[in-house]
Design a protein around this nucleic acid. Structure first.
Lengths: 305, 305
DNA sequence: ACAAAAATTCAGAAAAACTGAAATACTACC
DNA sequence: GGTAGTATTTCAGTTTTTCTGAATTTTTGT
């Protein structure tokens, strides 16, 4: 004796088509099922919804009921669709906080693929240093963080989970004609005596980059501009393998000795025990795929984990 | 495997209370039924809605689903409530078109009772002559008409139904000291020779009121003002029993002979084969009740039909 | 680690919804 | 105005869905 959404659906189909049999076809039921449902609905409401002539004309109550039923059906259908789309990662929000090197080298390909497949997902990308990445994730400003492992001394680390994604070597970008290029062994700090070491945003990610220099520091804002200065002969710069120039170039990457500058580990930072949104999970797939592609391209100085 | 409104209801109760058992109590089911419904919903959506810890925390998908489910539930509940209220004549619109005599004498009591019982029903009352009442109903400007029977020659009469409500005598309102008051028999037109017959809006409803007068016509706008003129000795006025003054008064009502002015029949005019709204049906009950009360008060010159 | 509480699973039971056949109501055509 | 044809309703039985209660597993608090 209760009004059900299904009864609304049957009623709306009947009122719209003006016929029990057509409504039955529309809702994939037999006419007798439709007839019974309609009767139940009228009993629950306590008034007829149709008057006389077959089911072609609505009573005043029927007209109101049709409007209300269609509004309720529409809201329900949109609700289920919204949930389905969100669960299928077709909609939602993807918020990432990553270090500059990742933002520049790993994410563009991943996000391009993600965006092409899921154009209705809102994307928010922030790049900052590792400590801030962890903070962003901790305070839920970002759902996904990609950076070095959170500092265990920091209390926010307790609520975070870290999963390594890759490890890459720290090294120098030098001109091909630089004497260091002929070293044929890992570089050590001593090799840089008397040389100018250019600094830039990504270099800030490298814990070991305590460049001992007598000269005043020479800082560039981006890796690109730092490399331009290196190319112009102003010095060398330190950077992780991920952002070093690859392939034919007038610059080459020289790995540093592990005890001079140990490889850095970069991984996924998320809130502990907090499931990811479907969109974030889908993004992660693309990110891992992009990292695999990078690993294939960058060789041994870049280890996929 | 489809998402159902009932699953939404169970899910919302669980998410709100944070517990399967409390939700079960809220929806009057056993915990096992709730557990199964939740499982079905998660299967249909293809993602978990809760994470780990009992059912206290929602996943991102669960948060979205809760918002959507509650919106859908709310819309459904409001739809059923709106339909119920309309069917119970608690809401809706009551539009009436009636003749002035009915508007003045029969309706006030009926509408007062109706209004007190159903304050949320919008009321629209128009008073006009019988032909316009019929027209109002025909073009659905009014759902209920109360007037004389529609003219069968008028094409709009085909779409209308007429049900007699009462019949009342046509007569004169005269001063107690008027010579006509001593007639002690039905009045005929000849009795009015040499007298002034006052006209007013309600007199227009009376088909027989072809007052043969040599003097210039004397017209008042309302019955009240016409009676004031009668009281002042300017003449007599013709009116149906319904609007004549009753009880102790300086005026008395003298019924006319049936062949001089036959009783008028007033009835309900509605669209043929068109059911009334619940509000209109409820109003009709009050109107009939008010007419019964009038019949008891007005005596033989007013017949309830 | 253990007792207690909560949730889940499962099988059977109850309720609801559906179907097909037969009866009835309505329409349209002669 | 009657009748054939179509649409709808009713009914009984069946299928499907949903629910319950007991047993089991999981989780929590001590």
């Amino acid at each position: 004796m209760a009004v059900t959404l299904n009864a609304f659906r049957v009623f709306a189909a009947t009122a719209r088509s003006g016929s029990v049999s057509r409504a039955a076809a529309a809702v994939r039921r037999t006419p007798s099922a439709v007839s019974m449902t309609l009767k139940q609905l009228e009993e629950a409401i306590g008034r007829p919804l149709f008057d006389g002539e077959r089911k072609t004309r609505l009573t005043p109550t029927g007209r109101l009921a049709l409007a209300e039923a269609e509004a309720a059906l529409d809201r329900f259908d949109r609700a289920t669709e919204a949930i389905r789309a969100f669960a299928a990662a077709e909609t939602g929000r993807l918020s990432l906080s990553v270090t500059p090197s990742v933002a520049e080298q790993a994410l563009p390909a991943a996000l391009a693929a993600f965006r092409a497949a899921r154009p209705r997902v809102e994307i928010l990308l922030r790049d900052t240093d590792s400590a801030n990445v962890a903070a962003d994730v901790a305070e839920e400003a970002a759902e996904i963080g990609i950076a070095g492992p959170p500092d265990p001394a920091d209390p926010i680390a307790d609520g975070l989970a870290f999963r390594p994604l890759f490890r890459d070597a720290i090294g120098l970008a030098v001109r091909c004609d630089d004497p260091l290029a002929d070293l044929h062994r890992p570089v050590r700090w001593a090799d840089l005596d008397g040389r100018t070491l250019l600094t830039h945003a990504v270099a800030g990610e490298i814990p070991a980059a305590r460049a001992p220099s007598e000269d005043a520091p020479l800082r560039a804002l981006t890796v690109t501009s730092a490399l331009a200065l290196v190319r112009a002969g102003l010095g060398v710069t330190i950077l992780p393998r991920l952002v070093a120039p690859t392939g034919e170039s007038d610059l080459i990457f020289l790995e540093m000795a592990p005890d001079a500058a140990p490889r850095r580990t970069v991984g996924l930072i998320t809130k502990r025990d907090r499931p990811l949104s479907p969109a974030a999970e889908a993004a992660l797939v693309e990110i891992e795929r992009a990292l695999d592609a990078l690993a294939a391209r960058l060789g041994a100085a870049f280890e996929r984990l």
